[in-house]
Computed example of a mutant assay.
Amino acid sequence: MNFILFDGPRRNHLLPFTFTRPVSEIRVGIMTLKERWEAYLKVSVTSLTEEYLSVKYPVNLEDLNIFIDASILPSDSLIKTIHSLKENEVVKSGDLIVAYSSASVRNSDELSSFTVIEFKNDLIQINNTWDIFDKNADILQSDFDFITKDRKSQPISDTNQLIHPERIFLEEGAKVEFSILNATDGPIYLGKNAEIWEGSLVRGALALCDNAIIKMGGKLYGATTIGPYSKVCGEVSNSVIFGYSSKGHEGYLGNAVLGEWCNIGADSNNSNLKNNYAKVRLWDYATERFEQTGLQFCGLMMGDHSKTAINTMFNTGTVIGVNSNIYVPGFPRNFVPSFSWGGASGFTAYQPAKAFDAAKVMMARRGVEFNEVEADILTHVFELTKKWRKY
């Protein structure tokens, strides 16, 4: 069978992260949504996404395909249902189109003629940006159980203090020394060549993905995911960093999501709780207004390639777009459009040519080329987001 993950109706609610990637490339728990489907299906899958992203993320169409909403997470029962699909059948959960089998891409109207298979079990779905951190604990636990089943951790150095070592797993090349690891409230997973430096305090759940680093004295807790090649220090609570990003110094990051190639300056902090303890509202690109999250704790959402200077402060429920640079004192407003340069005293447009120069240098430090494909994607995002920039 040929499996394709399509972006689905939640894509615009997952901006700014889906400006630069398909829904399937969102990381939550230990894996991306795509990696998780491939692990459960035991085959490679491709993504059906926006045309401007398709050069980097090409789709493979065959004579018969099974299309799956990428925002939905796999389960054993869902995998079984999907494997049983015949051509022109659709799996639905209420009004939600979960998956369908077809020779070609179909819209919802065309699927109305398909034979419906009702999926009655519970589904886990990433509906909004805040779901990425809010659902991270359960998903991280599920990923940990799946990845480590019938496997043995690499040895953990006896310089560390461990609580519930049976829930701590190190992949090949992972290192941790002179740190305290407490897996009472959730598992602790270190990917290949990940490192926790001396003096760190970790309270699970934690996923430190391949080649990621917690620097000396880091304090991490509350179902946190640090994606591949990222570096963190300071205090991090219930946050998800997709990969290749740095929060390398003191400062607080809580109930937050950072994309790739972000850099948080030293002593930068985000608030995750309103002074009046009210539920947090967050900018939603799909509705173009601030929507109620239903959460009392909600911090910072930051798109790819965005950066802060030292001592930057963010209000509760702040959304920063792609390739923005926040650098002046005070709290910037809680929605900053993509390609913005400035802060509390005002913004100007961050022109792509200058942004690309910075991206080339930053990515080269990690051995990754900033090529024409990346430039074309970001140029398209610059044009898409003009309407939100008033400068």
Rank of each mutant, 00 (worst) to 15 (best):
S239I: 08
V240D: 10
V240N: 08
V240P: 13
I241C: 12
F242P: 07
F242T: 11
Y244G: 10
S245G: 04
S245T: 11
S245Q: 12
S245R: 04
S245L: 06
S246A: 14
S246F: 12
K247N: 09
K247Q: 07
G248Y: 13
G248V: 01
G248R: 14
H249G: 14
H249R: 07
H249I: 07
G251S: 06
Y252Q: 11
L253M: 15
L253S: 12
G254Y: 03
N255R: 08
N255Q: 13
N255H: 15
A256G: 13
V257T: 05
V257D: 01
V257G: 01
L258Q: 01
L258W: 00
G259D: 09
E260H: 12
E260V: 09
E260R: 14
E260W: 11
W261R: 04
C262F: 03
C262V: 04
C262P: 00
N263P: 08
I264D: 08
I264V: 13
G265N: 06
G265P: 09
G265Y: 01
A266K: 09
A266V: 10
D267K: 13
D267Y: 12
S268D: 01
S268K: 09
S268C: 07
N269V: 01
N269K: 02
N269P: 02
N270F: 05
N270R: 04
N270M: 03
S271G: 07
S271V: 06
N272K: 05
N272H: 08
L273H: 06
L273D: 02
L273T: 01
L273K: 01
K274C: 02
N275D: 11
N276P: 13
N276R: 07
N276F: 14
N276K: 03
Y277V: 11
Y277K: 15
Y277C: 07
K279G: 00
K279A: 10
K279E: 10
V280Q: 06
V280S: 05
V280H: 06
R281F: 14
L282Y: 04
W283Q: 09
D284A: 05
D284W: 04
Y285N: 06
Y285W: 05
Y285Q: 06
Y285I: 04
A286S: 12
T287N: 08
E288W: 03
E288K: 14
E288L: 12
E288G: 09
E288V: 11
E288H: 11
R289Q: 13
R289M: 14
R289I: 04
R289L: 09
F290N: 06
F290L: 02
F290G: 05
F290W: 08
F290Q: 09
F290E: 10
E291G: 02
Q292W: 12
T293Q: 02
G294K: 00
G294S: 03
L295G: 02
L295E: 13
L295K: 04
Q296C: 00
Q296P: 01
Q296D: 03
F297V: 02
F297P: 00
F297C: 00
F297G: 00
C298F: 03
C298K: 06
C298M: 03
C298A: 11
C298E: 02
